[in-house]
């Protein structure tokens, strides 16, 4: 069943998701949304990996997808912790205001 759907559908979806995520990272100012966009991009990549894995009958893509999910989970935990800390500190999570480290 799934084999009848051509591969470029998956890839196109993945590319669209990635682009949405990328645009979100670039243009949104709220750190949480940027963060969510990053997750979106990661999952778009995951989708690509899984797709190729399935179509080529090679399971290593699955493995990497799991790895990415694990890293994403860890990253989400750390990233959210940082954002919460910044929020506590500055009462905003607008990334325009986060240029202190530059100096």
């Amino acid at each position: 069943m799934i084999n009848t759907i051509p591969i470029h559908y998956f890839l196109l979806l993945s590319a669209m998701l990635f682009t949405i995520g990328m645009l979100g990272v670039i243009f949104r100012r709220n750190a949480l949304i940027v963060f969510m966009s990053i997750e979106l991009m990661l999952n778009a990549v995951n989708l690509t990996l899984v797709t190729f894995s399935r179509f080529r009958g090679d399971s290593s893509g699955h493995v990497i997808a799991f790895l990415v999910m694990a890293v994403a989970a860890a990253e989400a935990a750390v990233g959210l912790a940082i954002i919460i800390n910044i929020f506590r500190h500055k009462k905003v999570v607008n990334i325009d205001t986060m240029d202190r480290m530059k100096y």
Binding site: V25, I26, F27, V34, I95, D96, M98, D99, M101, K102
Partner: peptide, 10 residues
């Protein structure tokens, strides 16, 4: 190099 990560990304 103004610290705006989003501009870097663009």
């Amino acid at each position: 190099q103004n610290g705006d990560v989003q501009r870097y990304l663009v």
